[in-house]
Design a protein around this nucleic acid. Structure first.
Lengths: 337, 337
DNA sequence: GTGAAAGCGCTAACAA
DNA sequence: TTGTTAGCGCTTTCAC
């Protein structure tokens, strides 16, 4: 493979200018002829700068990490795509990691983090033990930004309008005529979970309904967890005519639980979920959901990280636009219109 | 952060031995005292070798890429986990990429590939245009191994027993008493697709049934594609009492299509799918599937890649154990027993 | 047993 | 406008 020196030799100049020309150094005045000689030579040799050498020299590798729980959750698809897009457009490479996998091997993780293999890290925490470990280790060595989770001041964060989404969904249920509205909340004590719960409560209060904690269960964020949560709720034999499920996948499981227990959806129980996904349009019945700007969130998270790498102070941004939007399908019953 | 030189200074030795001791160079005889001084110093300074410097020197970065279509497909979860595990245990880092995202930006992709940022690439192709582009570019610059897809000789490959899986599933259907058995095949003309189709055909022939191509449609590998495929099959008004769907997610969509068209599953139509996933146990009705050793496949793929990096010839391996296993749930009807 | 030194490919400060 | 040079942190050969 060809090196800078090869290009310089072929172009008949020194490596110094080749580097500066190829990197489009503005503060450089070159003869046009030289410039083109260099470009031609680079083209001819199919020159690509060596990653390691550049990283060593610049002490910046151009790689940023995105660590999530359960990377194959379809929800992350959009977040990842957004992050990917932003990373690409700034010439960086995005690498995906699973938080639990990272925590499994603390040794390796520490090495990766401390070795300068990454310039920074975007983290989607969920309050687990792995989270604590991973973010403690990472935060003392790398710039970080947190997704939907704003505990520390020293790291950036970006939050979607989780409150608004839950609020909107709940209000929709109320408008449909429901009074006893349950909640399958995200599992754990973290910002996303709490804020979505708060949106639910607030919407109820605004409608003059006192939120009833007996109608709340943990719904998690997987099909299986959603199933279990709904089963609990059904077994509790409380009066509910509608439920807000804080996560689509959980809602898929919840649907199954209803079917297993003879609860008709939407006849006996209306269901609406937070987040959209391919599958939500194909369940029986199809799921009504509220859609959040996940792509934007991914994009913003790496933008904030990049800012920090430029030396700016960490920022906290809450995405207010595009706004959460309701997608009405079958699980909330037919809309009269 | 501390460097090798720092450690050497603190231990009162030269960087040379520090490097060799820390890397456990066998061909080195050191005084035990020296060795411990070095370890202590490294410990004290919390020394971690710099990734870039080491990569530059060794011309090996310790990073291997895994590129798939649709990374958030739950099927990949297992493959990825397996690959991850193998990579970790050999001290490498696995980075995930989406083939279509890569193909989007040929420039960046080429740069990543040629810059030595990756030691090798594991690729899950599906016969798309992106695939062709990506694998052409990559194959001339990097060692590669293909998942379930064995076209070239110059790259390694690992295949699951797709034939066996499809064969097993189809035989199950036959044993259940079905004669008219349809197929929702994977979209595209690639090995996985063709081999699964072949397994279906072969099982039928063995039972004295001539495979009927009128009963075959494209089912793709997403919920939406499966939906469309099944709709086509239903609209064709052919006589089918059972269908093998080549992918679970597609089967989820197929279920929806049946519901939409008044086709009762398993009453009117039995369905069995290839691959298992969390969701298959939560659909209505629950999906019967055949499970393939995906984790093993991921693991083997990076093992083969690592072998190539050691200078061995590319190998092709077909995973025969563990064998495909049937998981009977509801979509094939109750098993008499 | 251990040290010295060269050099991987690149960038940036300084000279010319 | 271009060339020269030092050095990023590490590994490895060769000398002592």
């Amino acid at each position: 493979l060809s090196t800078l020196a090869d290009v310089a030799r072929l172009a008949g100049v020194s490596t110094g200018i080749v580097s500066r020309v190829l990197n489009e150094d503005q503060s450089l005045r070159v003869r046009d002829a030289t410039r083109s000689k260099i470009f031609e030579a680079a083209e001819k040799l199919d020159y690509t700068p060596n990653h390691a050498a550049r990283a060593l020299r610049r002490s910046r590798v151009g790689v940023i990490g995105l660590a999530v729980h359960d990377a194959s959750n379809p929800l992350y698809e959009e977040i990842i795509a957004g992050a990917q897009a932003e990373a690409m457009s700034s010439g960086s490479m995005l690498v995906l990691a699973d938080i639990d996998a990272l925590a499994t091997n603390e040794k390796v993780f520490k090495r990766v983090i401390s070795s300068g293999a990454l310039d920074g890290l975007v983290l989607q925490r969920a309050g687990t033990a792995s989270d604590v470990l991973v973010s403690r280790i990472a935060s003392e060595r790398l710039p970080m930004v947190l997704l939907n989770d704003r505990t520390e001041a020293a790291t950036g964060s970006v939050a979607a309008d989780d409150f608004g989404a839950a609020h909107l969904a709940t209000r929709q249920l109320i408008e449909l005529g429901h009074h006893s509205i349950g909640l399958l909340r995200l599992t754990g004590d973290h910002m996303r979970a709490n804020v979505r719960s708060a949106g639910w409560a607030q919407a109820l209060r605004e409608a003059g309904i006192e939120p009833d904690l007996n109608l709340v269960r943990e719904g998690g964020q997987t099909v299986a967890q959603g199933y279990d949560g709904m089963v609990e709720l059904i077994r509790a034999r409380v009066r509910v005519s509608a439920v807000l499920v804080a996560n689509v996948l959980a809602a898929v499981g919840a649907l199954r639980a209803c079917a297993d227990h003879g609860v008709a959806v939407p006849g006996d129980l209306a269901i609406i979920a937070v987040h959209d996904a391919d599958i939500a349009a194909h369940t029986i019945p199809r799921l009504s959901v509220v859609r959040l700007p996940l792509f934007e969130m991914g994009r913003m998270s790496v933008r904030l990280l990049l800012e920090q790498l430029e030396g700016h102070e960490p920022r906290h941004v809450t995405l207010t636009s595009p706004e959460p939007v309701i997608v009405l399908r079958e699980s909330t019953g037919r809309v009269e219109r």
